[in-house]
Simulated assay, not measured.
Amino acid sequence: MNKLAWQILGTGGAALAAIATRKALGAVWEKSTHRPVPDNPANSEVGLGEAIAWTVVSGVGIAVVQLTVQRFAAQAVRSRFGEEALPKKMRLVQAARD
């Protein structure tokens, strides 16, 4: 159950946060640019500047939200189930040894 908690909170939470963030960023993009979100920024019909702007905005936005959710989830799992419930790379004890 301990490791399942991390899978649900850490991995699942980050995935759901990415989906929600992309939708929110898309709404902000459309409101501010009065243009639809580029479905495929690699398509040559999308201008290079627009493709780069959407890629940067969505990439950074999603990465920041995922990082925040994973840090919050790690703290929640750590306080409820202990370090052993986290993946090795997330454990504080492991990080202190390296």
Rank of each mutant, 00 (worst) to 15 (best):
E83K: 13
L16H: 11
A20I: 10
G82C: 06
D39Q: 09
G61A: 07
V28A: 15
W54K: 04
E84L: 02
A17C: 11
S79M: 13
T11E: 15
G47M: 07
A42V: 02
W54V: 00
G13E: 12
A96S: 07
A15N: 12
S32H: 09
V28Q: 12
L25V: 14
Q7C: 13
V37H: 04
T11W: 15
Q66D: 06
L86V: 03
L25M: 13
A17V: 03
R78K: 15
R22S: 13
I8D: 09
L25I: 15
R71N: 12
I8G: 08
F81K: 10
A74E: 10
L16W: 14
L4Q: 06
A18F: 06
V57C: 15
L67A: 13
L48D: 08
V46C: 01
S79K: 15
V57Y: 14
A51M: 08
V60S: 08
R78H: 14
A17T: 10
R78M: 11
I8F: 15
F81M: 09
D98Y: 02
H34Y: 02
N40Q: 12
I52T: 14
A85P: 02
Q94P: 00
P41V: 02
A5V: 08
S32D: 08
G26Q: 03
R91H: 11
G59P: 00
W6R: 00
F72Q: 04
H34G: 07
D39H: 03
A14V: 09
G10D: 05
K23N: 13
L4K: 08
F81V: 05
K88W: 02
P38D: 12
V28W: 13
Q94S: 04
Q75D: 08
